[in-house]
Amino acid sequence: MTADELKAKIDLEGDRKDFTYKEHECRVLRMPITGHLCGYVGVCTSSSSLHGIDYGSLDSVEVHGGLTYSGEMPDSGKWWFGFDCAHYGDHVPFCSLVGREVYRDMRYVTEELKSLVDQIINIEEDREDDNS
Rank of each mutant, 00 (worst) to 15 (best):
M1R: 09
T2Y: 01
A3H: 10
L6M: 10
L6C: 09
K7C: 03
A8Y: 02
A8D: 13
A8V: 10
K9D: 02
D11G: 04
L12D: 14
E13M: 09
E13N: 08
E13L: 05
G14P: 04
R16H: 08
K17N: 09
D18K: 11
D18V: 11
F19C: 10
F19P: 09
Y21R: 07
K22D: 14
K22P: 01
K22T: 05
K22C: 06
C26A: 05
C26R: 06
R27V: 10
V28L: 15
R30W: 05
M31G: 07
M31F: 10
M31K: 12
I33F: 10
T34W: 00
T34G: 06
G35E: 02
L37G: 03
G39K: 06
G39D: 08
Y40M: 03
Y40I: 03
V41S: 08
V41N: 09
V43T: 12
C44R: 14
C44S: 12
T45S: 15
S48M: 07
S48V: 06
S49D: 07
S49V: 01
H51V: 00
H51G: 00
G52L: 08
G52C: 06
I53C: 11
I53D: 02
I53H: 11
Y55V: 03
Y55D: 05
G56R: 12
S57M: 12
S57P: 01
S57F: 14
L58C: 06
D59R: 04
D59P: 01
S60Y: 01
S60M: 05
E62C: 05
V63G: 02
H64P: 01
L67V: 03
S70L: 01
E72H: 10
E72R: 15
P74I: 07
P74F: 09
G77P: 02
K78N: 09
W79I: 02
F81C: 01
G82H: 02
G82W: 01
G82C: 00
F83D: 03
A86Y: 00
A86D: 10
H87W: 02
G89W: 00
D90S: 04
D90M: 01
V92A: 00
P93K: 02
L97I: 03
L97F: 11
R100H: 10
R100M: 10
E101S: 11
V102R: 05
V102N: 02
V102S: 05
V102K: 10
V102E: 08
R104V: 13
D105A: 07
R107A: 14
V109Y: 11
V109S: 06
V109A: 08
T110G: 05
E111F: 03
E111V: 04
E112G: 06
E112W: 13
E112M: 11
S115D: 14
L116Y: 12
D118W: 13
Q119D: 02
I120H: 07
N122A: 15
N122W: 01
I123N: 04
E125Q: 14
E125L: 13
E128A: 15
D129G: 01
D130I: 07
D130F: 14
N131V: 12
N131F: 13
S132R: 13
